[in-house]
Design a protein around this nucleic acid. Sequence first.
DNA 1: TACAAGATAGTAATTTTTTTCATTTTCATT
DNA 2: AATGAAAATGAAAAAAATTACTATCTTGTA
Lengths: 138, 138
Amino acid sequence: MENTAKILNQKNLKATPQRIAIYEYLLGTGDHPTAETIYAALKPAHPNLSLATVYKNVASLKDAGLLMEFSLGGEGCRYDARTYEHAHVVCRKCHKVFDIDLPADTAEHKKTVSLMTNMDIDTCMMYYYGVCEDCWNK
Amino acid sequence: MENTAKILNQKNLKATPQRIAIYEYLLGTGDHPTAETIYAALKPAHPNLSLATVYKNVASLKDAGLLMEFSLGGEGCRYDARTYEHAHVVCRKCHKVFDIDLPADTAEHKKTVSLMTNMDIDTCMMYYYGVCEDCWNK
DNA sequence: TACAAGATAGTAATTTTTTTCATTTTCATT
DNA sequence: AATGAAAATGAAAAAAATTACTATCTTGTA
């Protein structure tokens, strides 16, 4: 059985071609696409994919913990399926998002936060905000 | 001159009653309200406030760096004007958001990230994801 | 292979956010 | 205090994003 399908099944999600395509697309891209972008990217190879299916799938994948949703500017929510923890650097002006390695180990932090909140904290996301070089020069 | 008005003027924003009200509301609340929630909260005291004005103001305040925008579930963007850095703890299931103190000092991290990216990083936001006690017990 | 649960496309409906624009307000300068 | 340019406002309309619905398929299991 193909690997992606197996992962989905382990999460009690059926491995439909659409879901596999959406998940693999997100795993493969370094961008942080919106639902619309995902749809546009996959439509050629999946001609009868519908936007509603994209939304339903990012929701189910998010609930399963396979991707993160976040929002920064006025372009709808963005999705990110990178499994390793990393930080996002966001330009306040143009809303570009870069990935960088975490500048610190978060394992200890997660333990601390778990104790503080009585929750089982599994993920830490860090966002750094500033103005990028391009926008400075304008 | 009143303090909030002064802050706004320093950011080249005109200190209109609506803008002052929105900003002070966000400074004062521990919640992470959506535009709609802000509107509903201020409408009684500002009867002819319009939702469009709320949107325009959170945008201008965000561009000025006076507040942060983020999104978690399917209820529109949330806004947070807390000036001190803090972390958000998010329940994956019910989307509740708690504020906690930062579990680590981020000054060093920001310097590191500034160097890595050639940006002037001024803010770090941390999000911890997990499942809260209430949702565990369901 | 058949079956039940789950997923899909397509569309409609809803919700959220942005734009438009005529009018009003702010604020630095007289 | 009056002036005027730039910015902000409210109301309505428009656009964009998201969800709901339904009849029809598919998946994964037995």
